[in-house]
Amino acid sequence: MSKMAQTPQPPYYAVIFTSERTEGDRGYGTMADKMVELASAQPGFLGVESSSRDEDGLGITVSYWESLDAIKNWKEHSLHRVAQDTGKSTWYSRYRLRVCKVERDSFFEM
Score class of each variant (00 low, 15 high):
7 T>I: 12
43 P>D: 08
52 S>V: 04
44 G>C: 07
52 S>T: 11
104 R>F: 04
98 R>I: 00
59 G>E: 05
29 G>C: 01
36 V>L: 02
93 S>K: 09
106 S>E: 11
39 A>W: 02
105 D>H: 02
10 P>M: 05
30 T>Y: 12
67 S>Q: 14
50 S>F: 01
99 V>G: 07
110 M>H: 13
102 V>C: 04
95 Y>I: 05
81 R>F: 02
104 R>Q: 11
45 F>N: 07
44 G>T: 09
83 A>G: 09
13 Y>V: 01
28 Y>G: 04
107 F>S: 13
56 D>N: 14
61 T>L: 11
83 A>Q: 07
20 E>G: 03
44 G>S: 08
58 L>V: 12
106 S>Q: 09
64 Y>S: 05
44 G>M: 05
24 G>L: 07
69 D>M: 01
94 R>A: 10
61 T>A: 14
77 H>T: 00
38 L>D: 03
72 K>Q: 15
110 M>E: 14
68 L>D: 07
29 G>T: 06
12 Y>N: 02
108 F>D: 06
47 G>I: 04
82 V>G: 13
84 Q>H: 15
40 S>E: 12
8 P>Q: 06
70 A>N: 04
94 R>D: 12
85 D>Y: 15
41 A>V: 09
102 V>S: 06
79 L>T: 10
12 Y>E: 06
70 A>K: 07
87 G>T: 06
43 P>V: 10
94 R>Q: 06
31 M>Q: 07
84 Q>T: 12
54 D>E: 11
18 T>Y: 05
53 R>S: 13
106 S>K: 00
24 G>R: 10
40 S>Y: 11
69 D>V: 05
104 R>M: 10
110 M>Y: 12
47 G>N: 07
9 Q>C: 13
71 I>T: 00
48 V>I: 13
103 E>C: 10
7 T>V: 15
98 R>P: 06
23 E>W: 11
81 R>I: 10
10 P>I: 04
108 F>S: 11
64 Y>T: 00
80 H>I: 09
92 Y>T: 04
38 L>I: 13
7 T>D: 08
50 S>G: 09
49 E>K: 00
75 K>A: 07
67 S>F: 13
70 A>M: 01
35 M>A: 09
55 E>H: 08
8 P>K: 06
33 D>T: 00
5 A>R: 05
95 Y>V: 00
54 D>G: 03
95 Y>W: 14
60 I>A: 02
63 S>L: 11
108 F>H: 00
3 K>D: 11
39 A>N: 13
51 S>N: 04
101 K>V: 05
32 A>Y: 08
76 E>G: 10
33 D>W: 03
63 S>F: 11
96 R>S: 14
16 I>L: 13
91 W>P: 02
98 R>S: 14
61 T>P: 08
45 F>L: 01
15 V>H: 01
23 E>Q: 02
74 W>Q: 03
38 L>H: 09
91 W>I: 07
81 R>T: 12
